Simulated assay, not measured.
Amino acid sequence: MTDEPLLRVRSISKFYGNRIGCSDISFDLYPGEVLAVVGESGSGKTTLLNCLSTRLLPTSGSVSYRMRDGLFHDLYRMSEAERRFLMRTDWGFVHQNPSDGLRMTVSAGANVGERLMAVGQRHYGDIRATATDWLGRVEISADRIDDQPRAFSGGMRQRLQIARNLVTGPRLVFMDEPTGGLDVSVQARLLDLLRGLVHELGLSAIVVTHDLAVARLLSHRMIVMKDGHVVESGLTDRVLDDPQAPYTQLLVSSILQV
Rank of each mutant, 00 (worst) to 15 (best):
9 V>E: 12
10 R>S: 15
12 I>R: 01
13 S>A: 10
13 S>Q: 05
17 G>T: 10
18 N>L: 11
18 N>S: 10
18 N>I: 01
23 S>R: 08
24 D>Q: 00
28 D>H: 10
30 Y>I: 06
34 V>I: 13
35 L>C: 02
35 L>A: 01
39 G>N: 07
39 G>S: 11
42 G>R: 07
43 S>F: 00
51 C>M: 11
55 R>N: 06
56 L>G: 15
57 L>T: 00
57 L>Q: 13
61 G>E: 07
64 S>L: 14
68 R>L: 14
74 D>T: 09
74 D>L: 02
77 R>S: 08
78 M>D: 04
79 S>W: 03
82 E>I: 11
84 R>T: 15
88 R>D: 13
90 D>G: 04
92 G>F: 00
92 G>K: 04
96 Q>G: 09
99 S>K: 13
101 G>Q: 03
102 L>G: 00
105 T>V: 12
119 V>A: 13
121 Q>A: 11
124 Y>K: 12
127 I>H: 06
128 R>M: 04
129 A>L: 13
134 W>I: 01
134 W>S: 09
136 G>D: 03
136 G>L: 01
140 I>K: 00
141 S>W: 06
141 S>A: 15
142 A>W: 03
146 D>E: 14
146 D>S: 11
148 Q>K: 09
155 G>Q: 05
162 I>W: 02
164 R>Q: 06
165 N>A: 15
170 P>Q: 09
170 P>Y: 06
171 R>W: 09
177 E>S: 00
179 T>G: 07
182 L>I: 00
183 D>Y: 01
184 V>S: 11
184 V>G: 03
187 Q>K: 05
194 L>F: 05
200 E>D: 04
201 L>I: 01
205 A>D: 04
205 A>W: 02
208 V>C: 04
215 A>S: 05
216 R>T: 02
217 L>K: 15
226 K>R: 12
227 D>L: 01
232 E>V: 09
234 G>E: 03
235 L>P: 07
237 D>G: 06
244 Q>P: 01
244 Q>F: 02
246 P>V: 02
247 Y>C: 09
248 T>E: 08
250 L>D: 11
252 V>S: 14
254 S>Y: 11
254 S>Q: 15
255 I>Q: 11
256 L>A: 10
257 Q>V: 13
